[in-house]
Amino acid sequence: MNRIMILAKKELNSYFNSPLGYIVGSVFLVASGWIFMQSFFFYEIASMRSFFSMMPIILIFILPAVTMSSWAEEKKSGTVEVLLTFPLENIQAVLAKFLSAFAFLGALLLMTFFIPLMLIKIGEPDRGVIFAGYLGTLFLGAAYISIGLWVSSIVKNQITAFILSLVVIFGFYIVGSSMLLDSLPPLAVYVGENLSLSTHFNSILRGVLSLKDLIYYMSVVIFFLFLNARAVGERNWR
């Protein structure tokens, strides 16, 4: 446990030490802030609905940029050989990388807290919905991160990892969209909707936190972290 935290801390530090961390952070803040402000001044409603509804799309670009280097760069520079010869299980290394990226996402979301604070000051937003929105974003982000980490563990180049993660996450996201499912048989619709990252996120956004959605996100995270540990264990990236 201790080693997981040591490694996670080091990884988190490297996000804050690298220009990429700041670029990603700034892009996230500008994009999410801009989307919020636009609807805020247009509709003049004290609500974060537009902010959260755009989160899945913004994070599709942001989180692969966070996770792209985590394994790909270690493999490219060879540091993975040092890392994996520490007295550390593969799954512990994977968990540490997951935790650090998740903490980075947490820090990004923390920086948007000025929005709900401002809304509470000037109006009466539904606090429950805002809370659910942040919680849903954390779940969704955790799923994105686990997919991004897995992709990073099977390729050797950061850019490839970024693009491939983006594609896989986007696939998981649109598989539940009505546009795609309309013409399909009911069983496919059922599977598509239940597999989709967006369906579950939208139900949380409505303020309904069901066990089903929780289990869904947990399963996605565990599944991809497991794949990640397996890919790392196979060491077949020579």
Partner: peptide, 23 residues
């Protein structure tokens, strides 16, 4: 390992401390 792979963004002392903790 061959070619001494290291975390480029860390300071020497900081890196050795990190490895010490991991070990």
């Amino acid at each position: 390992p061959e070619l001494a792979p290291l975390y480029e963004d860390m300071l020497v002392g900081e890196y050795l401390k990190f490895v010490g903790k991991m070990q």
